[in-house]
Design a protein around this nucleic acid. Sequence first.
DNA 1: GTCTATAGGCAGATAGAC
DNA 2: GTCTATCTGCCTATAGAC
Lengths: 190, 190
Amino acid sequence: MVGGTASAILDTAERLVQTRGFNGFSYADVATELSVTKASLHYHFPSKAELGESLIDRYSERFARALDEIDAELDTPGVKLDAYAGLYAEVLRDQRMCLCGMLAAEFETLPSPMREAIIRFFDLNEAWLQGILAQGRREGTLSFSGTPRDAARSIIDGLEGAMLVARARGDLARFRSTARRLVASVVGAG
Amino acid sequence: MVGGTASAILDTAERLVQTRGFNGFSYADVATELSVTKASLHYHFPSKAELGESLIDRYSERFARALDEIDAELDTPGVKLDAYAGLYAEVLRDQRMCLCGMLAAEFETLPSPMREAIIRFFDLNEAWLQGILAQGRREGTLSFSGTPRDAARSIIDGLEGAMLVARARGDLARFRSTARRLVASVVGAG
DNA sequence: GTCTATAGGCAGATAGAC
DNA sequence: GTCTATCTGCCTATAGAC
C-alpha cells in the first residue's frame, strides 16, 4: 500500500500533469510544493517514468471504482451515461484535463510502460461504455447506429475533445453542451 | 515573406510540435535535422515563443485557405462537412495531432501570444462550420438540434478528441468511424 | 525516510567572428 | 546568414550522512 508521503507526491504530480503535461512539470515543482527535497521524491519514485506509471495506474483504478459505483447506484443506461459524462465534468471543473487525454497528446515522448497503461485506461472506458450501450439497445432505452463499440468510442472521443478545447477556452459551458449532445445522441434517436 | 531557411525551420518545428508537443522538442532537435546550428535558428526566430507564434499563424492561414477551397470547389453542406473531416484525417495519416489540439493540451505552459493564437484557430473553425450548418439547416439538407454554434463546437470537439485518442492507439480507422458518425449526426436526422 | 551535495547533461539564449 | 564558443539555469538522478 502506498504510504502518506507517496500518496501526497502522487496527488501533486497528478495535478501538475493534468494541468501542464508530463513534459511540463519537474521533480523540483513537486518537491517545492510539498516542502521536501527532490532526493526524497526519488526515494519513493526512483525515476520520473515510474512516477508516471503509478499516476496512470492510480487514476485508472479510481476511475474503475467510479464506474462500479455508477453501476451500483444508478438504474437506467441513460442516467448512467449522464453520470459518466459527469465524471469528466468534475475533472474539468478543477481546470484539469483528463490525465490520460493529456498523456495521449504527449504519447510519442513517453516510455512504453506508460504508453501501455494509457491504452489500458481507454480500453477500460470503452468496455464499460460498450456494456451500457449494448444493454440500453437490448432494453430499447437507447438508440444509436452502428455497433456499441463504435458508439462507445465516439462518446469517449467527444468527451476527451470537449475537455481539451473547453479547458483552453476556459469555457466549462462548452464542455457541458457537447457532453449533453453526446448523451442525447444515443438516448434520443440513433 | 518568409525565406527558404525560415520556412524549412517552420516545417520541421511544426512536425515536431504535432508529434511531440511544444515542450517535447528543442532548438537542438530542429538544428540537427536541418544540419544547421542552434544559433542560426535564433537568427530567424529569436525565442522559442516567437517560433511558436509563427507556427500557429502559418497553420491557421493554411487551414483558412483549405476552407476557402472547400467553399469554392464543393456544393452541398454535407459534402463540405465530409471534406472538413478529411482535413483532420490527412493530418492524422501523417501520425500527427492537430497543431492547435496539441497546443491546447499544453495551454497552461504557453505564453499569452501563443494562447491567443490558439483561440483564434478554434474561432476560425467554429465560424466556418457554423456558417455551413446554418446554411444546411436553411436549405433543409442538414438537420440537428440546438444552435449551429453548439453543433459546430461538438463537431470540432469530436474531431479533436478522435485525433487525440486515435493517434495514441495508432488506429486511423477509429478516427474515421467517429468522424463519420459526427457528420452523419447532422446530415441524417438531428 | 529525509537530508546535503553534486554529478552530468540539455535547455534556451547571446556575443562576436566570418 | 551562419558559424564557434559560451553562459546560465534547470533537468533527472545518485552518493552518502543522519
